[in-house]
Every structure is written in C-alpha cells, then in structure tokens.
C-alpha cells in the first residue's frame, strides 16, 4: 500500500518538478560590474593624435584620433592587462571611414583579416563619421558570446551613457572591463541557454504529451472488446409481397466553386556569418 502511494507521489513530484523547471527562468550570473570611469580624464572630442600600436595582447588603432596621448597610454595599459589576463587580443579601432551600419560587420571583418591580428580576439570599432559602433569577436572568443545576446547587451548598455556624452575614452574603458567580466563568466552554456529560451515551451509540451498518454492509455484499458452485436442479416429473412419505388420529383442545386487564388510566397531564412557580433 505504502509502496503504491510512494510510486504515485514520486511520479507526481517528477511532473511538478518538470513544470517548475520549465516555468522558472534560469538565472545567469548577475552583472554587477561598475564602469571604471576615470573622471580625472575629460570626455574626448576627436582632437587627439592618431595612434597605432599592435602587440600580442592588444591593439589600439586610433585612426580617428579620438584619444589624447595620455588616454591612449592609459588605454593601452588596460588593454595589455586585459589581454594578459584572458589570453585574448583586445583591439580598439577608431576610424572616419563612414561605414554604414549594414556593412559594419563585413567591412571590419576584412579589416581584421588584413591586420594580421591574433586568432582569438575581441574588437571594439568606433566609426566617428557615422557614429556606428560594433563589437566583434573572433576565434575562441566567439564561444563566450554564442547564443547569449545578453552578454553583448550588457557591454553595450554599460557603454551607452559614455557614448551618449561623446566620452569614447570612458566607453572604451567600460568595454575593456566588461569584456573581462565576460571572460570571467566563462563560455556560454548552450544547455542552460536552451533551457532558458525553450524550457517553458518544451516543459509544457512534455507535460501535455505525458497527460495525453495517461488518459488515452486509461481509456484504452477501460473497455476491452467490442460490444455485443446482433447479426441481423444472419438472423432475419424477408418475404416481400408489396414493393414500390415511385419517382416523385427531382431538384438540382448549383454551387460555384471559388478558385484558390492565394499563392504562397517563398520564404527566406536569414543568412548567418561566421562570427559573433553586436552592433549598437
């Protein structure tokens, strides 16, 4: 008796757990990083000196001359520290090329390829003419962002206040610190992301399938065999003495068939490029 109820309770518990797991959101690590805004350095206008330094752990190619010399030095120091910590190459690239937002990814992919940067790299691009900004990741760094747009969003939203005031230096500092935070969080967990993204739907579908199986099986067991039938043809005979089939009337109805003029349009699937990126 106890065993019977234990089985039932266990089954019920599993179903409830399923529902709970599917309904509750999966919490990622909380993003509590504060921006490292060095207030001693003023917000910059593009009045600095063009800088181009490429090292193993970082690159600063300030073609738009956004940063002052001091800011550039400071940034290089931070980029180097971040690069050494993560093993990635941290790249900040500014330009006045005026690349449209649509072409940012392809254009700066080519730029990345042309500069002989490291395979594992994260690059912040600031186009001063169009005010377009892009974060691009390459190699192993992609797996830290894959499938989790929140990580890009987190960096972007932290940078936004600085970008809005034209403080590219402050924005760059936030980029460096936030990117390190992503490194600290580790590679994206696809399983958790799948759970977060589809868990509720899959959970509900699984419970629905389980319930359908339960009730269909139960009803199948309820009645075995067909109900008793009386074979009328085998047990009856008719000797007809009065037969008449008199035609009375006829009528015809006409139904106009509507032609099916709706033709389905073709569908296209979005193309995918080979890297992770975030535009803002």
């Amino acid at each position: 008796m106890i065993r019977k109820y234990t089985v039932k309770i266990s089954a019920l518990a599993v179903v409830l757990l399923l529902i709970l797991v599917s309904v509750c959101p999966v919490f990622a690590e909380s993003d509590t990083l504060t921006t490292d805004n060095n207030s001693s350095i003023p917000a910059t206008a593009p009045t600095g000196v063009a800088t181009k330094v490429i090292e193993d752990t970082f690159a600063l190619t300030d073609d738009a001359a956004v940063f002052t010399e001091i800011q550039a030095q400071e940034l290089m120091s931070e980029l180097k520290a971040a690069g050494e910590k993560t093993g990635w190459q941290f790249i900040i690239h500014t330009s006045n090329e005026g690349v449209s937002s649509k072409n940012m990814v392809s254009h700066y992919d080519k730029y990345y390829a042309s500069q002989n940067f490291k395979d594992n790299a994260i690059m912040l691009v600031i186009d001063m003419r169009t005010s377009n900004r892009q974060i691009l990741s390459y190699g192993d760094v992609k797996s830290y962002f894959a499938g989790d747009p929140d990580r890009y969003e987190d960096i972007k939203s932290a940078m936004k206040p600085y970008l809005n005031t034209g403080d590219m230096y402050g924005a760059s500092q936030v980029f460096i610190s936030k990117a390190q935070k992503v490194y600290d969080m580790g590679k994206t967990n696809k399983l958790l992301l799948s759970l977060k993204k589809f868990g509720i739907f899959i959970g509900l579908a699984a419970v629905a399938v389980g319930l359908i199986i339960f009730f269909v099986t139960k009803s199948k067991y309820k009645h075995m065999g067909t109900t008793g039938t009386y074979d009328l043809s085998a047990n009856s005979s008719v000797d007809l003495t009065d037969v008449a089939d008199d035609f009375v009337t006829t009528h015809t109805t006409v139904h106009v068939i509507k032609s099916d003029s709706n033709s389905g349009g073709g569908s296209s699937s979005p193309s995918r490029d080979g890297h992770s990126s975030g535009t803002f």
Partner: peptide
C-alpha cells in the same frame, strides 16, 4: 426523390 414501399 422516391416514394418507397416495402411490405411482407
């Protein structure tokens, strides 16, 4: 439409 009769 027919008027049908059967008897027997």
């Amino acid at each position: 439409i027919f008027h049908v009769v059967r008897g027997g």
